[in-house]
Design a protein around this nucleic acid. Structure first.
Length: 318
DNA sequence: GGATGTTTCCGTCAAGATCG
DNA sequence: CGATCTTGACGGAAACATCC
């Protein structure tokens, strides 16, 4: 009998009959009614998995890869978020037993969708750098969303709100909008205005409210951007004021467009999270079904053996 | 190899829930 | 009560399988 567990292409193989896999707190638990033979092969994708045998042996599988650590952390976080919802909590509590997890910690880690604005002071050109990321056409020009993996800010960093002043080589005099969100889960993104060519100029970002005396610097990593997806956000997305001039309209439309872009971005992230939670929930239900089916089978077998025992003793008495 | 169907993932919209 | 969050529904795109 072979089970796959944990996703991410990982396979857990258990060569015993009537084994059950419980997903308790994202640690795989294998309960086997049989003694695990020496020849059996068990490949466990997750570290800290537990194998329990009928012989009373408990084997803990310990892994040390960084991926395992990261994944456990991430899945734990997801589970904690999931556990906030009453409908999910009951099932998760059943599955996780009495293991309690701190929700407060999770809330601290979750302030990822915070964006702040900053103005730009034009400076001399310092060359062009191309960065991969989604590109948007807006009324105020092209806006590029840069994955945080392409950017590294050295110096002190804090979660959530980041106030940034921006110095760039932009050749126009319009204020430039820099939007920046940061979270611990790698979902940070920068939203930086770019030229028509789509190239990002070399910027220096400095946190305004940095408590450190050393101003952190921004290092822009270069990468190809040929596969960027472009999304067109047209002026139809914003109600136009009939009586206003084009200049007035753009003054009104720009914040609205930016607000819309922000809303869409947040909703995009929310939809991703929602789907993750849904998958997790379904996985929990499936695991619960497996556990209950096995318990049912065990109870039936126990009842059967007790009946046999009763019948045999009854015959002996006669 | 091209056409077609299925599955999966993603972004968006909208409506309801929740929060402050 | 407005802002924000959550989630079901919908459609598009990509990957894959099947058929001719």
């Amino acid at each position: 009998m072979i089970y796959g567990i944990g996703g991410h292409g990982r396979m857990l193989r258990v060569v015993v009959s009537q084994s059950v896999i419980q997903a308790a707190n994202q640690q795989s638990v294998i309960q086997s009614p049989n003694q695990l033979g020496k020849g059996n092969l068990i490949l466990v994708g997750k570290s800290n998995s537990v194998i329990q045998t009928a012989g009373g042996h408990t084997l803990q599988v310990v892994g040390d890869s960084e991926n395992d650590f990261y994944e456990d952390d991430a899945t734990k976080k997801r589970r904690e978020i999931l556990a906030r919802r009453p409908s999910y909590r009951k099932i998760l509590n059943d599955l996780a037993g009495d293991e309690k997890e701190s929700l407060q910690n999770d809330e601290e880690e979750d302030n990822s969708a915070v964006i702040n604005l900053a103005s730009i002071a034009p400076s001399s050109r310092s060359g062009m750098t191309t960065i991969s990321g989604s590109q948007y056409a807006t009324s105020s020009g092209l806006l590029k969303v840069i994955p945080a993996s392409a950017i590294h800010i050295s110096g002190a960093q804090t979660n959530g709100l980041q106030a940034i002043t921006m110095t760039s080589s932009s050749n126009d005099n319009h204020p430039t909008l820099v939007q920046y969100s940061q979270a611990q889960d790698g979902s940070q993104q920068f939203f930086v205005p770019v030229g028509v060519s789509g190239d990002l100029q070399a910027y220096t970002l400095r946190p305004v409210n940095s408590s450190t005396s050393m101003p952190p610097s921004l290092v822009v990593a270069s990468s190809a951007s040929s596969d960027d997806r472009k999304r067109q956000i047209t002026s139809n997305d914003v109600k136009r004021n009939p009586g206003s001039t084009d200049g007035e309209w753009s003054d009104v439309a720009e914040p609205l467009l930016q607000k819309r872009e922000l809303r869409l971005l947040k909703n995009r992230e929310a939809a991703r999270e929602c789907r993750r939670k849904k998958k997790e929930y379904i996985k929990c239900l499936e695991n619960r079904v497996a556990v209950l089916e096995n318990q049912n089978k065990t109870l039936i077998e126990e009842l059967k053996s007790l009946k046999e025992l009763y019948c045999s003793q009854k015959e002996e008495m006669h």
